[in-house]
Design a protein around this nucleic acid. Sequence first.
RNA 1: GGGCCCAUAGCUCAGUGGUAGAGUGCCUCCUUUGCAAGGAGGAUGCCCAGGGUUCGAAUCCCUGUGGGUCCA
Length: 927
Amino acid sequence: MSLEEEYQLQYFEDEGFHRLECSECGANFWTRDGDRQTCGEPPCAEYSFIDDPGFDEEHSLAEMREAFLSFFEDHDHERIDPYPVAANRWRDDVLLTQASIYDFQPLVTSGETPPPANPLTISQPCIRMQDIDNVGKTGRHTMAFEMMAHHAFNAREDIEDPDQYAYEGEVYWKDETVELCDELFDSLGADLDEITYIEDPWVGGGNAGPAIEVIYKGAELATLVFMSMEQDPEGEYEMKDGNRYSPMDTYIVDTGYGLERWTWMSQGTPTVYEAVYPDMIAFLKDNAGIDHTDEEESIIHDAARLSGNLDIDDVDDVEAARDDIADQVGVSTSELRDLVEPLEDIYAISDHCRTLAYMLGDGIVPSNVGTGYLARMVLRRTKRLCDNVGVDAPLDELVDMQAERLDYENRDTIRDIVRTEVERYRETLDRGGRRVRQLADEYAGKGESIPTKELIELYDSHGIQPDMVAEIAAEKGVDVAVPDDFYSLVAERHGGGEGVEADEDDPYADRIAELPDTDRLYYEDQTRMDFEAVVLDVFEREDGEYDIVLDQTMFYPEGGGQPADHGTLSTDDVTAEVRDVQISDGVVRHRTDEDPGKGEFVRGQIDATRRHRLMRHHTATHIVGYAARRVLGDHIRQAGAQKHTDSARLDVRHYEPISREEVREIEHLANEIVMDNSTVSQEWPHRNEAEAEHGFDLYQGGIPPGEQIRLIHVDEDVQACGGTHVARTGDVGAIKILGTERIQDGVERITFAAGDAAIEATQRTEDALSEAAEILDVSPQDVPETAERFFTEWKERGKTIEELKEELAEVRAAGADAGEEVDVGGTPAVVQRLDADMDELRATANAIVEEGKIAVIGSGRDGAQFVVAVPDDAGVDAGDVVGELAGRVGGGGGGPPDFAQGGGPNEAELDDALDDAPDVLRQVRNA
RNA sequence: GGGCCCAUAGCUCAGUGGUAGAGUGCCUCCUUUGCAAGGAGGAUGCCCAGGGUUCGAAUCCCUGUGGGUCCA
C-alpha cells in the first residue's frame, strides 16, 4: 500500500490545488498554478529570490523569529522556550539537538509524558555537525541554526484505553498544518502561486509517515512531517527504506521551518550568511583587512548569485562549478578564487562562533569525550580558519560577540574556556610542529617523502592535520602525498569489533513481571529503620542465596550512586540477613541468606549506622556539587557520583584542574551550608512543571522516567534524585574534601567525606603525618622542610658514594693487593675476586684497563657476577670471555667487545671459574 | 565509552637488553667589550610509580599514575 492517498487533503481541494508531476525528477507535488512544470526544488529549478526577496519586508533573524512565533501564538499555539543544544541533558541517545522534535523524544512522542503544551510553537537552536565542510562554501549550509516549528500531539480516539497515553484525542492533523503554513506565507506577503508542496514520505529512527516539503522560489523553506507509523514487520506500508510500517496509536505533527532560510528569503542576499551575520561579517572583513573595490564587489555578488542558482550540495560541487562561474562573470578561475575564498572563511567563522556560543553557553565543557569533543573540534577548526584568513582578533572575543547576541549570562566563563582551549591548541601545535619537523628531517635525509603511515600516526595520535604536515614538510623540501581516502584509513585503525555485552539473564524475569510494584516506604519516611511486610515471593538462587520480594519495603535498592541498604528480615523462626537490594521494573528484590517463607509476615530492620552514613554522604554530594558550582561557575555539572559509607565522590565537568585554593573555598562554602542547618525537602511535581521552573540542570544524576519526578531541595540547589537524604543540612555534620583529581579531560573528581567519616578521614591523614614526623623525629609542622632536606642529602650522599667507589677502584687497581696477574699473548691480565656490587666492579675494571691491562673481576655479592674489560688491541673479545665464565656459574652475559658483564646463580662455582679465567682468555684470543 | 601515542638534565628530545647522552639554558673562567657574541671548563638525573622476565631493565611484559590525541 502506498501513501498516495494520504496526500489527498480537503484543504488542497478547497483551495483549488493541482496535483502535478515534476517534469525533471518525477516527484508529485501540489500547487495553485496548474501550468507549473517542475517541483520547484533545485536542481529541477533555480533560486529566484536572490536580489528579489520573496516577502514584503526585510526581516532580521530576531524579527523573523518573532514573526513566526507570534503568528502561531495568534493561532492558538503556546510559545515554548527553547531547549539546550546539548540534547544529552535530557536524553542519552544523542549528543546534540538537531531538530525541534528532539525536545520531545523519547517520552512525549511515545505518549508516556504529556508535552509542555499542545499544540505548541518553538524556535529551537540546533547544531548539525555533518555539514561542517560545506559551511561558508555553498552559500546556504550552516552548522548552527534555529528550527522554528509548531507541534501537535494526537492520540487516536478509537483505542481501548484512552488514558493509556499522556494526551488524548486529536488536536489537528494534515489539513490544518498545511493551512497554517499557507497562511504564514500569506501573512508575510509571499506569492502563493509560487509555492509547491512536494510529497516526500519521511522515515527515521523507527518511525515514518507522510511528509511534505514546502518550496518557495527555489528554496526549501519548511518540512511538514506527519509522524504516524512505526516499524512493524507485519505492517501494511512499505517505505523507502525497505522496511514495513504500521500505524501507531499516537500521531504527531512535526514541522520544521529554518529560521535562517526564512530570513534569507526576506532579504534576498546572495548567501544566507550575509542575511544572518551582517555585523559579524563586517567586523571580520575589517579585522582581516579585506577591502573590495566596487568592481570586485560586483564580481563577488554575481558569483554568489550564480552559485546559488546551481545545484551545489557540497564542497566538491563548489570546486567543480568554479571554472564555469568565473567564465560567466568574466574573470579567471584563480582571480575568482582569491576573491571568494577569504569570504568563505569569514562566513564559516561567523557560523562556527555562533555554534560555539550555543555549546559553551549551554555549559558544554571541551574535552576528549562526548559533546566536549565536538566543541573542541569546532573551536580548533575556527581557530585555523581565523589564522588562515588573517583574523587576529582573539577567538574568545569573537565567540563572545555571538554569546552576547544570544543573551547568555555566563559570558565570562565562556571567554575563559575559549582562552584555555586556544592555549591548549597552541601547545598541541607546538608539539606537533616539532614532531613533524623532526620527521621531515629524517625523510629528507633519506630522500623519501613522508609515508601515509606516518601521516595517520600524526593525525590519530597527535592531532596534526595532514595539510599542516604538508606545509611544514614543504619548508624542509620534503614531499607529502595525502591519499584521498585518508580519513577512512584513520577510521580503519579504529577497527569495527564493537563488544556487545549481553544483559545478565534473569532466570525468573517472567515471575517478577507478574508481581505488583513494591511499595517504597523510604520515600514516605527516610528516617525510619524498621517496618513490617508480607513476603510475596521467594526465588532461590543458584549460589544458595534467596531473592525476597515483599509487598512494601524500607530497604533502599542500589541506585543513583547510592549503595543498597543492609539489614535483616525476620519472622518468629527465621532471621535472614539482607546483603543486597536491587530494583527492576518497580519490583524490589532483597538478597538474603535465609528463606523466611512465602506468605509470611516479616519484620524488616535496616542497618541504621550504614544507612545514616550513606544518607549523609548523599546529601553532602548535593551540597558539594552546589558549592562547586558557586565557586567554579555555572557550567559545573555532575558527570557521575558514587557514595560509600566512609567517603563519596563527585565527578564534575570543568575545563581546568581545581586548584588547592578553590578546594578550600568549596569546602568552606559546603560547611557553611551544613552549619546553616536548613531543611532538606522533597517534592513530587509533574516533570513539565519541574523542568519549566528549574530547567534541565535538575537531571544531574541522570534522567528519571515517569510523569511525576522526585525533587530534592538542599539550600538553593534542586535536583531530581531518587536517593535517601538527611532531614536538615546540619545532620551531615561536617564535610571534608579529601582530594581532587582529573579522571579524564574535562572531568574533575572531588572526593570527600561527611559526618563521622570526615573526622575519621582527617584522623587518618593526621596519623600518617604524625607517623612521618615521628620517623623523622621532628614536629608535624617541620615534616615538609625536613623531608626536603633529607631528600637533598640522600641525593648528595649517592653522589659522594659514587665518587668514593671510583677512587677506591683506582687505588685497588694501582695497589699491590691486585689479584693474580697473567700474560695473555703479550697483554697482562688481572684476574681478581672482589665481592662488591656491579658499579664497583665496573669502576675497578675501568681503572685496570686504564693501565693497559685486561681486567677479569668476579664478585660473589649477589650470585656470581663478572666484569671483563679489555684495552684496545689486546685481541680478546670481552663478550666471549664473560659468556664462557658466566656459563660456568649457570648464567649468561655479554656486551661490547671491550667491556662485558654477566653472571649466574651458582656462587659456589665462582672461584673455579676465576681459576680457569687465564685459560679462557688464551682460548678466546686464539679463536 | 573505545583505540592509539607519550613520560629520560630546568626546557626540547636522542638512547630497543650490557658503564645514561645531545642541543639549549645554567655556573666558572678566558677573549672581546658599547652591546651582541666567541673560546675553555663545570654541575646537573629515584630514566613517572609498582610488580614481572633476565646474570643484567631507562630499554621487554603486566598493572597503575599523569599527559596528549583520534573516533562514537
